[in-house]
Amino acid sequence: MLDKLKKLQYGLKVKWYEATEKHTRFIDLDGRKIQIMEGGEGEPLLYLHSAYGENLWLPFHQKLAERFRVIAPAHPGFADSEGIEEIDSMEDMIFHYLDLLDYLGQDRINIAGVSLGGWIAAEFATRYPDRVKRLVLAASAGLWMADHPMTDLFAFLRRPLRLREINFHDPNSYLAELLIPTEADEERMAAAYKAMAATARLAWNPPGHNPKLAGRLRRIKSPTLIIWGDDDKLIPTAYAEEWAARIKDSRVVKIKDCGHMLMFEGEDDFVAAISDFLGRS
């Protein structure tokens, strides 16, 4: 049984890697190399990934690509994207995405961000509201509720079991073990460490939020979809209502039996909610 699982995991990994290669290109953005995955046809959708660093072409990318032209860059410091030395704050990250959208010739685009990516998307939308067509914030970081503190992700980096508990509704699922393995190989450990270091650059202090953001959310003009797992132990589900209360044209979709990693654990509902929301005229 165990061997079979291992084989399956290996098989999946190989497919992901192959697909990733097919969908990945590198661009030179003012001297920094940036990794971008692209796929699908139709309306462009900028996907901003989470602190996990989902920079392989994964099933949820593929499903979104059946409806949209998915553009999924790796943030500086993640995967093979360079330029983390120039990122000291969210401000720098927003300029980075301003540069990237200009490079891609996207004047006004749909943006979906998960967790760290949601935070970046929301910050971008407060500064450049006219460049965001529709906005999707999924299990987004960026706000702080004293009554519902976020869990300190950084405290448990070398405790895979605890990490799975924080990130998944079902920490014992095959999926959870696959995404946060008990024993990772060196390559994966290195990638995870890099991802967490790049996240810490922005999210160490204040932890995972910008105290100024809440007051700026009124500037967002675009219709906004807020998606949350109903069992998010990293950024509690209560945050969904907080975002909704602060963004004028917003609605909330919650995914049942789903933790923080909703693009994996709630994959179908996640994709359906985005497709439904962006598909409206």
Partner: peptide
């Protein structure tokens, strides 16, 4: 004592500590 925050060392050093 080994609770190590991310980015505190280079990737290479982090792996060698482990």
């Amino acid at each position: 004592i080994d609770i190590s925050p991310p980015g505190y060392t280079s990737v290479k050093s982090a792996l060698s500590i482990i």
